[in-house]
Computed example of a mutant assay.
Amino acid sequence: MEKTLILLKPSAIQRGHIGHIISRFENKGLRIAGLKMMQLTDEIIDEHYAHLLDKPFFPRIKASMMATPVIAGCIEGLDAVAVVRTLTGVTNGRNAAPGTIRGDFSMSVQENVIHASDSIESAKTEINRFFKAEELFEYKLASFPFIYSTDEAKQD
Results as ranks from 00 to 15, higher is better:
residue 47 E to F: 01
residue 10 P to V: 06
residue 15 R to L: 05
residue 3 K to C: 08
residue 26 E to K: 02
residue 117 S to V: 03
residue 35 L to A: 05
residue 80 A to H: 11
residue 51 H to P: 02
residue 93 G to K: 01
residue 121 E to P: 04
residue 140 K to Q: 12
residue 130 F to M: 02
residue 91 T to S: 13
residue 58 F to V: 04
residue 79 D to N: 13
residue 116 A to S: 15
residue 122 S to E: 11
residue 31 R to E: 12
residue 68 T to K: 08
residue 56 P to E: 14
residue 106 S to E: 09
residue 116 A to F: 02
residue 63 A to K: 15
residue 125 T to F: 00
residue 67 A to P: 04
residue 120 I to P: 05
residue 61 I to Y: 06
residue 25 F to P: 10
residue 6 I to Q: 06
residue 28 K to H: 13
residue 42 D to Q: 03
residue 103 G to T: 14
residue 64 S to D: 11
residue 26 E to C: 07
residue 74 C to L: 08
residue 32 I to G: 01
residue 88 T to F: 00
residue 106 S to N: 10
residue 140 K to E: 12
residue 9 K to F: 08
residue 78 L to D: 10
residue 30 L to A: 09
residue 22 I to A: 09
residue 38 M to K: 07
residue 116 A to N: 07
residue 128 N to K: 12
residue 83 V to T: 15
residue 119 S to N: 14
residue 104 D to Y: 14
residue 11 S to R: 03
residue 59 P to H: 09
residue 58 F to N: 11
residue 40 L to E: 05
residue 74 C to D: 06
residue 123 A to L: 07
residue 44 I to H: 01
residue 117 S to C: 05
residue 54 D to H: 15
residue 103 G to L: 14
residue 61 I to P: 11
residue 10 P to M: 05
residue 91 T to A: 09
residue 124 K to F: 05
residue 122 S to V: 03
residue 101 I to Y: 00
residue 78 L to Q: 12
residue 135 E to I: 12
residue 138 E to R: 05
residue 107 M to G: 12
residue 12 A to M: 04
residue 10 P to H: 10
residue 12 A to R: 02
residue 120 I to L: 15
residue 97 A to M: 14
residue 62 K to W: 09
residue 83 V to F: 12
residue 92 N to P: 02
residue 47 E to V: 02
residue 90 V to T: 15
residue 9 K to A: 11
residue 75 I to T: 10
residue 123 A to F: 08
residue 109 V to C: 03
residue 24 R to C: 09
residue 124 K to I: 06
residue 22 I to T: 11
residue 38 M to N: 00
residue 89 G to D: 11
residue 28 K to S: 07
residue 95 N to M: 15
residue 118 D to M: 00
residue 21 I to Q: 07
residue 39 Q to G: 02
residue 97 A to N: 12
residue 2 E to T: 00
residue 54 D to C: 02
residue 58 F to C: 04
residue 7 L to T: 10
residue 117 S to I: 01
residue 36 K to N: 06
residue 116 A to R: 05
residue 34 G to A: 10
residue 6 I to V: 13
residue 134 E to Q: 12
residue 49 Y to P: 05
residue 66 M to R: 09
residue 28 K to M: 06
residue 30 L to S: 07
residue 26 E to R: 03
residue 64 S to N: 15
residue 46 D to I: 00
residue 63 A to E: 15
residue 20 H to Y: 05
residue 59 P to T: 08
residue 119 S to Q: 14
